[in-house]
Design a protein around this nucleic acid. Structure first.
Length: 334
DNA sequence: TTCCGACAGTGGGGTCGCAAT
DNA sequence: ATTGCGACCCCACTATCGGAA
C-alpha cells in the first residue's frame, strides 16, 4: 500500500479534507441516457448487474451497506473477510457485489443470496460473489470525495491488493461508443460513463451516465390478475411508478415467470392484498378480475420501449428487487 | 447421454370493428 | 355514445418433446 502523501500532488491536497471515519456516505447515482458519446475527458466502465454496496472499514470493524443503507455484511461474509485482511485500516469504498452465471454477471443468480442474512448459510449457498470496486471515498482520516475521479481511482489502485473476491473495476478512457458496442456484443448490461475530473457527487448526477444495452425499469407491483387456462398462481402483474405524489400505472407483465416463481409471487402477494387500487390514475387502469396489493414490492421489468400512451412495450418479468425501496421507484428517462 | 430447435400455451400493448349497454 | 370484447398485428417467455450430435 502506497502512502497517501506519495499519491497526491500539492494541487490534489487542496481538495482533500481531514475527516473522521464516516458511518455513511450518500452514493452517486448515474443518470440513464441514450445519447452515447466518446470523449477523452470521460472514463468508461462496464455496467455490472449486481447490488451496489459501500464498504466501510474502520480498524476491526468492516461493514457493507447497500445504497438504502441496509447492512449486508452478514450476507457477504467472505467480502468482509477480504477487506479485513487488507493493510489499510481506515477506508470507504464504492463498488458492486456481483455473482456470475458462466461469464456473465447475473442478478438472477445473486438473488439466491440477497435474502440470506446468516453468514454460515450465505457461505454455504454455493453462489460465489465478487466485489468490483470502482471508487474510493475516504482513507486514513481524509475525505477524498473532493478529488477528481481519475485521482481517486489512482489512489484506489495503490490502496488495496486486488485478489479475489476483491476486484478492481477496469475502465477505459475516451472510447465510449466502442465500449458500449463491446458491452452489448458480450451480453453485458451496458456501460457507465464518468467525467474524469469530477468530484464524488452525493445522489443523482449527470457526471455519471448509464449506457444501457437492455432496457429495464424497476416498478412497484400494485395488483395481479387471475391465471387463465392451464396456468397456476397468477396471470399478470400490474405495475407502476411514482409520479407527482401518486402511483402511476405502467403496464401488465405476464411473461418471464417460471411455474415456481408464479406460485411464489402469488403466495407473497396474496398476503398483502388490499381492497382499493393503489394506483392514482384511476381511469385507464384495468380493473376486471384484478386483485390489488399494497404497493411495497419492487420488480425489475425488461421492455423494448415506452409507448405514446406511457406503457411499456413487450414487458417481461426479470425478478424482484428486494434491495430497492418501493417509495424510490420513478420512471427513468427514456 | 446431452443439447437444440420447433411448437404449444400464456401473457403483453395497440388497433380495429362489432355488439351490448 | 360509451364500453366491453374478441381478433389481429407485433413480441417475450416457459415448458415440453423429439431428433440430432
Amino acid at each position: 500500500m502506497t502512502d497517501l502523501s506519495e499519491l497526491l500532488s500539492t494541487e490534489d491536497l487542496e481538495h482533500v479534507r481531514p475527516r473522521s471515519h464516516p458511518s455513511w456516505v450518500q452514493p452517486t447515482l448515474a443518470t440513464l441516457t441514450h445519447d452515447h458519446f466518446s470523449d477523452p475527458a470521460w472514463l468508461y466502465e462496464r455496467k455490472l448487474d449486481g447490488e451496489r454496496c459501500l464498504a466501510f472499514r474502520d480498524g476491526d470493524s468492516v461493514r457493507f451497506l447497500t445504497r438504502n443503507r441496509k447492512d449486508v455484511s452478514d450476507t457477504y461474509p467472505e467480502l468482509v473477510d477480504a477487506l479485513a485482511a487488507q493493510d489499510v485500516a481506515d477506508v470507504v469504498l464504492d463498488g458492486e457485489v456481483v455473482a456470475f452465471e458462466g461469464r456473465q454477471t447475473s442478478f438472477a443468480r445473486l438473488q439466491g443470496r440477497l435474502q440470506l442474512s446468516d453468514p454460515k448459510r450465505a457461505r454455504a449457498s454455493g453462489i460465489e460473489v465478487f466485489y468490483y470496486v470502482f471508487d474510493l471515498l475516504h482513507r486514513d482520516g481524509y475525505d477524498l470525495t473532493g478529488l477528481g475521479l481519475r485521482t481517486r481511482k489512482n489512489v484506489l489502485r495503490h490502496t488495496l491488493r486486488f485478489t479475489d473476491p476483491l476486484r478492481f473495476s477496469v475502465h477505459r478512457v475516451e472510447h465510449g461508443e466502442a465500449m458500449y458496442r463491446e458491452a452489448c456484443r458480450k451480453g453485458w448490461e451496458g456501460a457507465i460513463a464518468k467525467r474524469g475530473d469530477g468530484s464524488y457527487h452525493h445522489g443523482r448526477s449527470t457526471d455519471w451516465l448509464k449506457f444501457k444495452c437492455v432496457r429495464d425499469q424497476e416498478l412497484v407491483i400494485g395488483g395481479y390478475t387471475e391465471p387463465q387456462g392451464s396456468r397456476h398462481g397468477l396471470g399478470a402483474l400490474l405495475v407502476g411508478y411514482h409520479d407527482h405524489g401518486g402511483l402511476r400505472y405502467a403496464c401488465k407483465v405476464g411473461t418471464g415467470f417460471t411455474a415456481k416463481v408464479l406460485a411464489q409471487l402469488h403466495d407473497e402477494l396474496s398476503r398483502i392484498s388490499t381492497d382499493a387500487s393503489p394506483f392514482t390514475d384511476a381511469q385507464d387502469v384495468p380493473r376486471r378480475g384484478v386483485h390489488w396489493v399494497r404497493p411495497r414490492t419492487v420488480a425489475q421489468i425488461g421492455f423494448t420501449e415506452w409507448t405514446e400512451a406511457g406503457r411499456l412495450r413487450h414487458p417481461r418479468y426479470q425478478g424482484l428487487r428486494r434491495d430497492k425501496d418501493a417509495r424510490d421507484v420513478v420512471r427513468e428517462q427514456t
